[in-house]
Simulated assay, not measured.
Amino acid sequence: MAKVLILYYSSYGHIETMAEAVARGVREAGASADVKRVPELAPDEVVRKSGYKVDQAAPIAAVADLVDYDAIIIGTPTRFGNMASQMKNFLDQTGGLWLGDRLVGKVGGVFTSTGSQHGGQETTLQSTQTVLLHLGMIIVGLPYSFKGQMRMDQITGGSPYGASTLADDGEGGDRQPSENELAGARFQGRHIAEIAMALVAGRPAERK
């Protein structure tokens, strides 16, 4: 059985919700899914005043955990068209894994959240994929076989680079992931897990 890690950072719970949907898709494919999050970097006072969601059930990941998985799916909100600093800080600590080729050949994917429809979803997905490529990972996005990303009857996240959601309702209020966006996250999780399982099955026994 392929092992898949869903590694995320979430300030207000949107990416946390998407991560659980990705995990459901992974399990639907018959792979195992672990959901973990990266450490918070913001000071406690900022976290409290900003109303960050602190009651997240996922355990904190360690960089060394990454080698234990056949696929790693990254979830991060957008910060000015790039990944959140909490996720970047965590990935910046993988130099030793990079040096030892420990992540080469693993499947990688990314999903994200932005405050607005044009808030940098695709640049965040692609810039995060760049890091995974440097680590030697095989990038898998959200193919157009998920037809929900082409819907025109509603505002929705989703692109061929990965699943996404919009976190603002357009009036400064909170917007939770829609059913279509969650369906995209499940699809991406299932798709990545299926590819990871195929790769695991095809490896020589000594490499499994």
Rank of each mutant, 00 (worst) to 15 (best):
G148E: 10
I6D: 10
L182H: 04
T156M: 12
R24M: 12
E171M: 10
M18F: 13
D174P: 01
K49I: 01
P177L: 08
R175H: 09
Y52L: 06
D92H: 13
A42K: 02
G108L: 08
Q149C: 00
Y161F: 15
G100R: 14
G173Q: 11
G100H: 09
P204N: 12
G173K: 14
D34M: 07
T124F: 11
S50A: 15
R27I: 08
S32V: 02
R27A: 07
I139R: 00
A58Q: 07
L91C: 13
A33G: 06
T156W: 03
H191Y: 14
G115A: 15
S32H: 09
Q121F: 06
M1Y: 08
S50Y: 03
M87H: 08
A33F: 08
F146W: 14
G108W: 09
I138P: 00
L5D: 08
L99F: 15
S32M: 05
T156N: 13
A183D: 14
D168L: 09
M1K: 15
V110K: 13
G75D: 01
L135C: 02
E194Q: 14
M83Y: 02
A29I: 05
R27F: 04
V4Q: 04
V4W: 10
A21T: 04
T78Q: 06
R37L: 03
L142Y: 05
A205Q: 12
V200D: 13
I73W: 07
D55W: 02
L41K: 03
E179T: 11
T112H: 09
D44L: 11
Y8C: 12
V107I: 15
E171P: 00
F111A: 05
E28D: 14
T78A: 07
Q126S: 11
R186T: 06
G75M: 03
N82T: 12
A31P: 06
E40K: 00
